[in-house]
Design a protein around this nucleic acid. Structure first.
Lengths: 229, 229
DNA sequence: ATTAAAATTCAAAAAATTATCACATGGTTT
DNA sequence: AAACCATGTGATAATTTTTTGAATTTTAAT
C-alpha cells in the first residue's frame, strides 16, 4: 500500500515540526507549506491525500485556500484554528472542510482525526460499487467479495479475486503481466512479474472444469486474457 | 395517496404561498408555520406526515427544530437551504433529515422530492414496522435492544448488538473495518480499527454453534460479513 | 530435432492480516 | 468505596496470503 500523503499548511514552525515528526512516525508522508500561496502550489504539485490547513496564514488565509482547493478537488481538509469560541462550524463546513481542530491541540488527537477523516473519505468512496460479473457458471461480486462457481461459493484470496475480476470484466482483452501488475496490484508495485503467473495458476486450479464457455487463456509472448468461447 | 399532511416551516411568505398552492394542487394538505417555535407546536398539533423545514428561521433555527422533532418522531423531514454551493450533507443527515433542497428551487422538483421521500418512508414503514431481523435461530431487535438465540434471550452489550444488527441487515455484503466504524460507531469516531476485531470476537463467542445457516465471516484482506448458508 | 525464449509449477520464505489476550479506562451499580 | 460492566488498546501469537527463486515443461522458430 502506498504512503498516504499529507500537506500541512501552517506558518508556525514549531507546530509544523512537531506535527510533521509525529505524523511521519505514524507512517504518513508529510510536506509543509508556510503560507497560503505556497500551500496552493504545493497542493497542485504534491497531490496530497489530505490537507491540514491553518486559518490564519500569511498571503492568503485558510478560508480562501480552502475555497480554491475545493474548486478542483474533494480531498479531505482539516482546518486548524486558534479561536475556539468564535469559530463557526457551519461556515467551515460550507466551504467544504471535513473537520476541525482547535489550537493548542494534542498531536495524538490530531493524528486520530487525520485517521478518522481518511477513513470517512475512503469508506464513502468505495461504498457503491455494486458490480457483479456473470458468465456461464461463474459469478464474481466485489461487494460480497465472493466467487461463485456453478452456484457454489468458493473461497478465494483477495488478490486472486481482484485479478479474476479485472480480467473477466475486460473479457477477450489481452493484458501483459506488467499491465496486470499495474491495474490489479497498483502502479507503484515493485515486484517480479512471475507473481502474475502464480496467481493465474492458482485461479486455474479453482476454475478448472467449471465451464467450457470461458477460460483464463495464455497469449504466448504477450500475457493473459479471460477468453469467451 | 389520500389526505397526506405536510407541514411547511419557513419565514419567507412568497415561498410559502407558492409551495402551499402547488402542493395542495397535487392533493396534499398543507399547513404553514413561519418560525421555529411555531413550527414545533404545529408539529405536535397537526401531526403531519412530512415536514418541509427551512434552515434559517426566526426564534429557533432549522437544525434545532429538526433535532427536537427527531426526539419524538421519525416522520420524514426535507430541509430547505439557501446555501447551495458547498452544503455539507452529512451534518444534516446526522440530525436525521431525509433529504435536502436548495433555494431557489423549482416547485416541481420539490414536489418530486416530497413524493420520493414519502414513498421511501412508507415502503420502509410497512416492510418492517419493527426493526427486527430474523434468520434461523437468531432474532435481533433494535427497538428492544435484544438478541434472541434459538429462542432464548441473550445478554449482549449495545455496541455488539448494533454491529451484529448492521451486519445482519446487510447480509452477504462485506464491509471493511473502516466502513463498520463509520456506520456503527459513527462518522466522528476517533479510534483504532482493531476495535472491530475485538467486537467480532466477542460476538462470535456468543453466536458459536447457534446455527450453521449463517456466520460472522472474515473476508481476508477486506473485512467482515454476515454470511448466509 | 534442436534451441532459446516463455510459461508453468513447486515449495519455502517473507509479508500481511487477523485472532486473541490481558489489561486500562470510564461510567454505573451496589 | 468496591465491584461491575462495556468498551477500547497495545502487544503478541496464529494464520493466511503473497512473493520469490529455481526447476521443469511447453512453445515457436530455425
Amino acid at each position: 500500500m502506498m504512503d498516504t500523503k499529507i500537506l500541512l499548511i501552517d506558518d508556525d514552525a514549531n507546530i509544523c515540526d512537531l506535527v510533521k515528526i509525529y505524523l511521519e512516525n505514524e507512517g504518513y508522508e508529510v510536506k509543509v507549506a508556510s503560507d497560503g500561496s505556497e500551500g496552493l502550489s504545493f497542493f497542485k504539485m504534491y497531490e496530497p491525500d489530505l490537507i491540514l490547513l491553518d486559518i490564519m496564514l500569511p498571503k492568503k488565509d485558510g478560508w480562501q485556500v480552502c475555497r480554491e482547493i475545493r474548486e478542483q478537488s474533494s480531498k479531505p481538509i482539516i482546518m486548524i484554528t486558534a479561536k475556539s469560541e468564535v469559530f463557526d462550524k457551519v461556515l467551515g463546513l460550507e466551504l467544504g472542510a471535513d473537520d476541525f481542530i482547535v489550537k493548542p491541540f494534542n498531536v495524538k488527537e490530531l493524528s486520530a482525526r487525520v485517521k478518522a477523516v481518511l477513513r470517512r473519505y475512503n469508506a464513502h468512496a468505495s461504498q457503491n460499487d455494486d458490480d457483479v460479473i456473470k458468465f456461464e457458471n461463474i459469478e464474481i461480486s466485489l461487494q460480497k467479495y465472493e466467487l461463485k462457481l456453478a452456484g457454489k461459493s468458493v473461497d478465494v484470496p483477495p488478490k486472486e479475486l481482484e485479478l479474476l475480476y479485472f480480467l473477466a470484466s475486460n473479457s477477450d482483452h489481452v493484458f501483459t503481466r506488467d499491465q496486470l501488475l499495474d491495474k490489479v496490484w497498483g502502479f507503484d508495485y515493485l515486484g517480479d512479474s512471475r507473481t502474475v503467473d502464480v496467481h493465474v495458476k492458482r485461479l486455474r486450479e479453482k476454475l478448472d472444469g467449471v465451464s467450457d464457455k470461458w477460460m483464463l487463456q495464455t497469449v504466448w509472448g504477450v500475457g493473459y486474457k479471460f477468453k469467451l468461447v
